[in-house]
Design a protein around this nucleic acid. Structure first.
Length: 355
DNA sequence: AATCCGGGGAG
DNA sequence: CTCCCAGGATT
């Protein structure tokens, strides 16, 4: 299969054109300042399913707060989540800290440079493993992400569905055969840059592509038709009432989310799902579930928030309580001014302005 | 092999 | 609106 795909493909010519282009035009990115494996690691985790422009400010802030593996290992998880606030996929942050603690405990704080130990760390999958091994340790390991599959599906005119797991293995094999043994670090990063700036998902600028003479899809004029990707099914919709609860002491009540699942360990304003009850039973349901008596006073907003796999419809209500303390473990009474100390998902940050 | 897990921006 | 982004863990 691989032999067939790579038949008559000029590997060394492709490598040379790609690398020469990269040496001249590579993007100036903060994690390319040096090859510190910790910085490479943090950047690769942040960049999972996340655009470069989004990551840059988070990367600076994160490295300022946690400059070394030891700083991150010793940090409070809530502080790590606060540094991740708004970036999404929060298990990345929790897994990264878990893995860093393992590196400190098992490897004396030195990030392992072999595939077995590196790939065993929490949150380090096939892509990230290859990225760290190649970028930080100069090892010729493939790092297959969306860019790599898009670029090589066009260059080699591969029409397999890139949404399927087995297709990713095909591209790992392909990349393992094409990657430069002289400069694997630059090679992998060059494919990323090419995918981000030239070989883009829509309207690729093939005229400016350094490897267009090696591209089979371009030669056939079908680059816009690749890669093939099956569509994801659409999200499920869930209605909620969300409460901004205020007490007589000018305080508000927030809730810590469960330690597993969606937005784990982040904070929110108490939410009541309207899947089993109707809106006029919210006060009773809340008293039964949280042991707190509240009175809904005013409708503040209606927020629609879309996740990868579901959609929240939040009817935001202002509520009052006569209580000054709470008894449910999940709830916490805080001063209005202290709300900024807690990590909130973006969906709930939109509610802060009503405080 | 499917599903879960966030949020943003380009078009 | 749709797509998809330097994906991984869980089932």
């Amino acid at each position: 299969m691989i032999n067939h795909v790579l038949q008559k493909f000029n590997i060394s010519g492709f490598q040379q054109e790609l690398l020469e282009w990269y040496y001249q035009y590579k993007r100036d990115l903060p994690w390319r300042e040096n090859q510190d494996p910790y910085r490479v690691w943090v950047s690769e985790i942040m960049l999972q399913q996340t655009k470069v422009d989004t990551v840059i400010p988070y990367f600076h802030n994160f490295l300022e707060k946690f400059p070394t593996v030891h700083d991150l290992a010793e940090a409070d998880e809530q502080d790590v989540l606060k540094a991740w606030e708004g970036l999404g996929y929060y298990s990345r942050a929790r897994n990264l800290q878990h893995a860093v603690r393992e590196v400190v405990a098992e490897y004396d704080g030195k990030i392992p440079d072999n595939p077995k130990q590196l790939g065993a760390l929490k949150g380090v999958g096939p892509y990230t493993k290859g990225a760290i091994l190649s970028i930080a340790f100069n090892q010729p390991e493939p790092a297959v992400d969306g860019n790599v599959m898009r670029v090589f599906s066009r260059v080699l005119m591969i029409d397999d569905d890139i949404a399927q797991a087995k297709t990713k293995k095909l591209f790992e094999s392909v990349t393992g055969n094409i990657i430069s043994k002289e400069d694997p670090s630059s090679f992998n990063q060059a494919i990323m840059d090419l995918g981000a700036t030239i070989c883009t998902p829509k309207s690729p600028t093939c005229m400016l592509c350094p490897v267009n003479e090696y591209c089979r899809a371009y030669a056939e004029g079908v680059e816009e038709q690749l890669p093939i990707k099956s569509k994801a099914k659409k999200q499920k919709s869930i209605p909620y009432v969300t409460l901004l609860i205020k007490n007589a002491d000018d305080q508000i009540i927030i809730e810590k989310r469960p330690e597993q699942g969606l937005l784990a360990n982040l904070w929110q304003f108490p939410m009541i799902p309207l899947t089993d009850i109707s809106k006029d039973h919210v006060e009773n349901w809340f008293r039964a579930e949280y042991g707190l008596t509240v009175k809904l006073t005013k409708e503040l907003d209606h927020i629609k928030h879309t996740f990868s796999h579901l959609i929240w419809h939040m009817d935001v209500m202002e509520a009052e309580t006569q209580e000054t303390d709470v008894h449910d473990q999940r709830l916490k009474v805080i001063d209005k001014a202290d709300v900024e100390q807690y990590p909130f998902p973006v969906s709930h940050q939109k509610i802060k302005k009503y405080i």
